[in-house]
Amino acid sequence: MNRERWEQVSEILDKALRLPPSERSVYLAQIAASDPELHREVNSLLASHEQAGSEFLNTLAAPTGFLGSRHPAIAVAA
């Protein structure tokens, strides 16, 4: 997928993820009418998003406050 197309997919996927289920299906139906290929792609990624759940790639996340300005060595100079 080229960059422009991926940007478009990203935008629509993001929008779809933010919508409540009822509005989402209306939105996706609009996309399907104008660009079926785009609709397929977004639908497939929505399914992956569901499957990924909350665990995928989140298991290595640092504990809160682990990095950042709280440690004296990492203090931001004024």
Binding site: L13, D14, L45, S48, H49, A52, L57
Partner: peptide
């Protein structure tokens, strides 16, 4: 946040 969510979905599909 937006990029993270989108990338995670794509990566999950790709790895599967």
């Amino acid at each position: 946040e937006r990029d993270w969510a989108v990338a995670r979905a794509w990566l999950h599909r790709e790895i599967s």
